[in-house]
Amino acid sequence: MRNALRMALTLLIIGAICGGLLSVVNGITAPIIKDRADQQFLQALEGFFPDVAKFEVQDINGEEFYSCYDAAGKFMGVVGKVKAKGYGGDIAYDLAVNDTGDIIGMRIGAHNETPGIGDVINKDPFLQKIIGLKFTDPISAGVDVDTTSGATVSTGGMISSIRRVMNVIGENFLGMEVEKAEIDLTKVADGTYTGKARGFKSDITVQVVVSGGKITQIEIVSHDDTPGISDNAIKGMIPKIIEAQSLEVDMVSGATLTSQGIVNAVFEALK
């Protein structure tokens, strides 16, 4: 009994000392690590807007946006410190947009994408595709930006995240009108509608039945995408859209382009 007590006590003491020591070291190093991350971000900020003289931080839905001004106080653009969903978890990145809504720079921060596969998002060719895109561009996978095959999840995730961030920036900082891919079903009269949008290989045509202000049925009239892969998208997307009564649903991974095509086609049908 005394022995057991002694053992437990010894472990407890060692554990307490270790824990205490670690919290002290953490107290010393954590601010340094944070400072450096801030410093790197500031450097990136200056890289995007060399003339930046001051900036303001604004928090929108948990993400930070920095509006940049030059020495004369003229608004130059916005840098968003944002996150995208990738294959291996969140991808943190900075997106710089100038005052006319063009993407002028992007910096990928921490990410866990598989080396050699998902990390194409950090390579020049992918960055080249992104930089120069305008707010008015669709910025949609397969439409004006191609996903990289073999890394569809990572690149597709980046592209849809960039579109989302562009909308946030456009709406909040540039006073742009954001065209919502969302449909006000109450304004759609009952009936059957047909719409067409580009899938993976060519157009996907859908027929949508609306009754009582609800989407009750979606049917794929024709498509040309790879059987097997696209079947998953069709099987997955249609119930999702009908259940959510919305087009803001997750894509079927592995068949992102077909999924996106279906969403776009339904949107075209109902708009």
Binding site: T10, L11, C18, T29, I33, R36
Partner: peptide
């Protein structure tokens, strides 16, 4: 009898310190 968990605790502490210091500097 409890030496192994005690050793692991001690080692893990040093490792975490190294981890933090390397990250900082």
């Amino acid at each position: 009898k409890v030496r192994i968990p005690a050793y692991i605790l001690i080692i893990a502490t040093f490792v975490t310190i190294v981890d933090m210091v390397l990250n900082a500097f």
